[in-house]
Structure formats: structure tokens, C-alpha cells
Design a protein around this nucleic acid. Structure first.
Lengths: 219, 219
DNA sequence: AATCCTATGACACAACTAAGTCACAAGTTC
DNA sequence: GAACTTGTGACTTAGTTGTGTCATAGGATT
């Protein structure tokens, strides 16, 4: 379960947010002023911080400076229309902002999007006896390092993140290569072939005819 | 692959959205007025609908009423700052809204978030001892994987989604093949035959003479 | 009930399309 | 420039799908 810190001096707003995020399955802590917020950040690790700019005592920007070295993603809560605030916040390292008054659905969407973005970075992925370290970009199978090229690695990650899902060729291509797929070359096929060989995954990477590929089995 | 319907009268906006969603791996259909939108909803099943409130002829709210019983999730596209619109939309059953002009990234994030939330619900179909996983595109009967081709799979889904309903040949054909039916070939019959064989569904798929087929029984 | 007409079942096969394989050239990195 | 990565085209192999033919069954008409 992911933990979210809400730093917001208006208790009504803070609690409204909390109720809704808890309902979505997050664990939430509220701090009603910057100092308390800083204390929490010191003591615990959070997956995400929602930070009001206008705070008594310590303001949001200072707190942001404080959070930055830790690397926790931050969403700024800013007053309506205050564009310079947003820009300042983003420059200082906030990952996103949301304008008050906001609909709770919008907040949740942003929280989810940001957590998903960050989630990808610090993770290790595993599939059967294959372990993928996203940070060092290394892959081990049964403990032995398997050398993969950049494209092979990206493709593997995409497959493992969607194990047991039939992935359309177009989608795979677009995710790994970042551009539209024109189905007249053998690029994707070749890379699949290389992955299958290097990992001995002749069966695990199943061809779904006229669709794409599916990584089958695993944990 | 998930299908999204975009109902938006400004073609430029509709197409912009489409291009971006297609790049993300979705299949998109655009309707430039409410009536066309209603037609599509009638004919096809979508995973998500993006719906502009301000539409010629039928407005967004009416269309929403129309979609509600089907249960497809809806994201409203509303004009800037029109708070009462948003609230009305949410009350009427929209699952989220986004304010124009929007950043395309935000739209995508919301689409993904919503599909993920809903995806947990709608991704498996069952009929008797047959389980259909829409995501991995696999079919199991009594636990054993049954290999189906694309057309067979699509046809099966159509039948199961309308179990105990007599489906006209024309309708089946148009749903699965996406084109008009000219009743002088054995195409549909052959595929029905293949399904019956692979699933041992000689009785379950009942022929309705001069009409089409009906999947009978099940849970 | 006998007859006729049409719809569907069964089947085999041809046409088509997709994917596998491979070798190599162009591009990158060290 | 050596070693490696990557994309591509030619070719091969394989899987899918539509179609015609013929057999059979269903329903209508008399």
C-alpha cells in the first residue's frame, strides 16, 4: 500500500482529500502546517506528497526544497489562476500541480498518474527465474547476468510488465520505439527472436497470431 | 486492444484526441454529432466514451442517459470553468471530466486511470465452464487453454456477451467482421462450426433457423 | 404426407497474410 | 577501427480465413 502525505492548512480540504484517497486504497497522513509536514517527511518515507503552497510558518516552496533531495514526487496545490506560482513550483521541482478548487476525481487521476510514472523507476521486476533491475538495467536469469541491448531490455520490460496480456504489435512497437508502427518491416520480430534466444524463452513468449505476443506463465 | 468512442463536434479536437490515443495503443472511433454517437454505441461495444457536452442535436447529457444502462465508463469534455456543467455531469453518472483546453497528457492519464479502474471489472467473461480473458485473449474450458484464432475469439465474445439472445446473422457478421453481410458465402457458418468443435459446443450454440445463432444455457 | 425450396452443416482447399529466420549494411560506441 | 547494436529486405515457413461444392435438414405449400 502506498503512503501519501497531505500538507494543507485548511483542515476541511485536507480531510476531504484524505477520505477520498483512503477510499482509493492509499494510506494518508495529514499535516496542517509546514513544520509538522517537515517532521513527517523526516520521520517517514512517503510515496507522494500533496503540498499546499500557502502555508503558515514554512511556506510550500521551502518545504519543497526540503523534499527535493529525498526524491519523493510532489504535487502542488495552488490557488486558482495563480500562474506564476505554478511555474515557480514546477521550476523548483514539483512534478505536477492542481488548481484549487478542484474536483476530487481530477486529483485522484493525477495522483495515480504520477505514482505510476515514478513506480516504474525504482522497481525490480521478476518473471519466473528472471530478475530485472530497472536502475542498473541488468537482467539475471537463475542468477546469471544476461547481456541485453537497450531495445531488447525495453522490450523485455514491456512484456514483463504486461505478463499474461496479449500485446498488440502496434502497441509494443509504439511503447518500445516511441513511434508509429508500419507493419512492413521485420524489426519487432527480430527483437523478439533475440529475446527468445538469449533467455531461452521459446515457449514463454508466445505468438498470438494476428495480434502480437504474450508472455505466458511466470509468478 | 481497447476501443474508445470520441463524441465531439469539433473535428480538429476529435482527431487530435484520436491520433494521440491511437499512439497509446487504443483503437478509436470518432462521432461528430450526438446522433452518430448514439448509433455507434448501439452497434458496437466500447471500453470508454469521451463525450463533449456541447453537441448539435442531441446534447451530451441526453447521450449520457443513453449510455448509462450499458455501463460503459464516460469522461466528459467540458468547456473551461463551467463548474455547474461538471457537477451535473458527475451527478448524471460520468466517471470523470476534463476541462477544455486540456493537455493531451492529462487526457491520456485520465483515460488510463479510468480504464484501469474499470478494467478490473470487465475483463473476464464466463459461460458455463468456459472462461474468457479479454486481456490476455485466452480461453479456458474446464481449466484447459483452448487456442482460438482472432475471428473465432471475437465471435465467441459476441456470443457470450449476448448469451440466450438470438443473434441475427447480419448482426454477428457485422460485429465480428466489421462490414456488411452478403448472405451468399459460408464464412459465418464455417466459423461457427470451428467454435462448436473447439469448445464441444454442438448444443450450446443453437442454430435459429432463418435468423442466426443463439448461445444457450450457461450461468 | 409428399414435394419443393431454401438455409445450414460439413469439408477440403486455395489464397492470403503473418511471422520466423537469416545475413548484412548502416549506424553507434568505445 | 573494432566491436557491437539495430533496422531491413529477401526468402521461407506456417497459420488463418474465405469460398465453393455437395449433403442434409427445416419449414412452407399443396
Amino acid at each position: 500500500m502506498q503512503k501519501i502525505l497531505i500538507v494543507e492548512d485548511e483542515k476541511a480540504i485536507a480531510n476531504l482529500i484524505k477520505i477520498n484517497l483512503v477510499a482509493e486504497g492509499y494510506r494518508c497522513t495529514c499535516a496542517y502546517d509546514g513544520e509538522t509536514g517537515a517532521d513527517y517527511i523526516e520521520k517517514e518515507t512517503f510515496d507522494l506528497i500533496l503540498l499546499d503552497i500557502m502555508l503558515p510558518e514554512i511556506n510550500g516552496y521551502e518545504l519543497l526544497e526540503y523534499v527535493k533531495p529525498i526524491g519523493t514526487p510532489v504535487i502542488f496545490l495552488t490557488a486558482k489562476g495563480n500562474v506564476s506560482d505554478r511555474i515557480k513550483g514546477l521550476k523548483l521541482g514539483a512534478d505536477d500541480y492542481i488548481v484549487k478548487p478542484f474536483q476530487i476525481g481530477e486529483l485522484i487521476a493525477r495522483v495515480e498518474a504520477l505514482l505510476r510514472r515514478y513506480g516504474k523507476i525504482n522497481k525490480k521486476l521478476t518473471f519466473a527465474d528472471v530478475e530485472i533491475d530497472m536502475v542498473s538495467r541488468t537482467v539475471r536469469k537463475a542468477g546469471n547476468i544476461i547481456d541485453l541491448t537497450v531495445k531488447e531490455f525495453d522490450l523485455l520490460v514491456e512484456l514483463v510488465q504486461n505478463k499474461n496480456v496479449a500485446l498488440y504489435r502496434e502497441r509494443l512497437y509504439e511503447k518500445v520505439w516511441g513511434e508509429a508502427y508500419m507493419g512492413d518491416t521485420r524489426t519487432l520480430d527480430s527483437h523478439i527472436q533475440r529475446l527468445r534466444r538469449k533467455l531461452n524463452w521459446e515457449k514463454e513468449i508466445k505468438t498470438v497470431f494476428r495480434v502480437g505476443y504474450r508472455l505466458e506463465g511466470g509468478a
